[in-house]
């Protein structure tokens, strides 16, 4: 398990504080953009549970993002109002159910075959929604109202208001982060990290490895479903593009770029990618060229992603030489490994 060093923890708290304060000063446009980023962060953290902790490289994670969005859209497309609690239960159960089915079949395979099986399932769902006229086909489905969070008959928070929606999503992001770090601190978390490190040894110790993998897959799928639900509620529509392989690809890029195996890395990755997508077109019409160049530079020069860079910086600035050495030696191992050494 990685431990949050104190400088990183302070950095994260400052980040959350900045996010809390931002709507007071920021423009409407950036509030909307940050909502998108935070939703993408939830999506990316959920994938990190698979890639960075369990060692399951899913190339079809967008399927669950899409299922979350489509569940909301299909059940409430003609409704005048959306009851948040009912919607949440529906989204959670549908995405968990689909993740259970896809996971049950996919974890039989390993390595590249697992990557391709998850991709195949995502593509099947993509074409299912793309080609079915009942579910909007390639136009997708529009939603005409935001969910209402009712307690009794009084509304807890008015999500029609963009600022309220912003805090709603921020709360989800923090909650998902905390839930996952609790899961990872629990015995379950230690077992899945061990599975990533050495699967056969964990099996030899008598753990039902496949069942652990499946549970991890279902948790990740369900959280991705929540992200999709939030995205659909925010934008007011779902399209098959939610489930496309581009979406799976970009979220994988976010996780790796941010630093897999650290829960905060994918959040940083989401910020960097979306802000670059927003910022680079100001310079040049051919911004994708720059984007590609930046990603290549990260791959070649920052092997542990942005989180790895942060660890290196904070070690150099705040801790003794001994720790700094640890973070620099093991060249190509993912962030989890050297950080685990620190916590020992």
């Amino acid at each position: 398990m990685y431990t949050l060093t104190r400088p990183i923890l302070i950095f994260l708290c400052l980040g959350v504080a900045a996010l809390v304060l931002f709507p007071l000063v920021g423009s409407e446009f950036y509030v909307g953009l940050l909502i998108r980023i935070m939703i993408l962060s939830i999506f990316a953290i959920s994938l990190d549970l698979l890639i960075g902790y369990t060692g399951l490289i899913s190339f079809g994670h967008a399927a669950f993002f899409g299922i979350g969005g489509y569940t909301l859209a299909i059940f409430f497309q003609d409704a005048d109002s959306i009851n948040f609690w009912i919607a949440l239960v529906l989204v959670l159960s549908c995405s968990a159910l689909v993740a259970l089915l896809v996971g049950w079949i996919s974890i039989r395979a390993s390595g590249v075959y697992f990557i391709m099986l998850t991709l195949a399932f995502a593509q099947m769902f993509y074409y299912f929604f793309f080609e079915s006229p009942d579910f909007g086909g390639d136009d997708g489905i529009f939603l005409f109202s935001k969910p209402e969070i009712l307690i009794g008959s009084t509304s807890l928070i008015d999500l029609e208001d963009e600022h309220n929606f912003y805090y709603f999503v921020l709360a989800w992001m923090v909650a998902v982060y905390l839930i996952l770090s609790m899961i990872l601190k629990a015995p379950f978390g230690h077992v899945i990290v061990a599975i990533k490190a050495n699967e056969s040894r964990v099996r030899a110790l008598g753990y039902p490895v496949q069942r652990y993998k499946l549970v991890s897959f279902v948790i990740a799928g369900t959280l991705a479903g929540i992200a999709g639900f939030l995205e659909a509620a925010h934008t007011g529509y779902v399209t098959p593009a939610y489930l496309g392989w581009h979406e799976s690809g970009i979220v994988m890029v976010i996780v790796i770029l941010g630093g897999m195996g650290t829960l905060f890395g994918p959040i940083l990755g989401a910020f960097v990618i979306v802000l670059l997508q927003d910022f680079l077109p100001n310079f040049t019409e051919h911004w994708q060229l720059l984007m590609g160049g930046i990603i290549i530079a990260v791959v070649l020069f920052l092997p542990k992603g942005i989180a790895g860079l942060l660890y290196r910086l904070s070690n150099r600035l705040f801790t003794s030489k001994e720790y700094a050495d640890v973070s620099q030696n093991s060249g190509d191992t993912p962030a989890t490994v050297d950080v685990r050494e620190q916590s020992l």
């Binding site: 770029l257 911004w287 060229l289 984007m291 160049g293 791959v299 070649l300 092997p303 993912p334």
Partner: peptide
């Protein structure tokens, strides 16, 4: 540069190559 690295980094790098080639094609 990637032979010794995890598959994931190859995925990331070749994904970046897609972006670059698509943009070059557009240019």
């Amino acid at each position: 540069y990637l032979y010794q690295r995890d598959h994931l980094y190859q995925v990331l790098l070749t994904y970046a190559l897609i972006l670059i080639f698509n943009e070059l094609q557009r240019m």
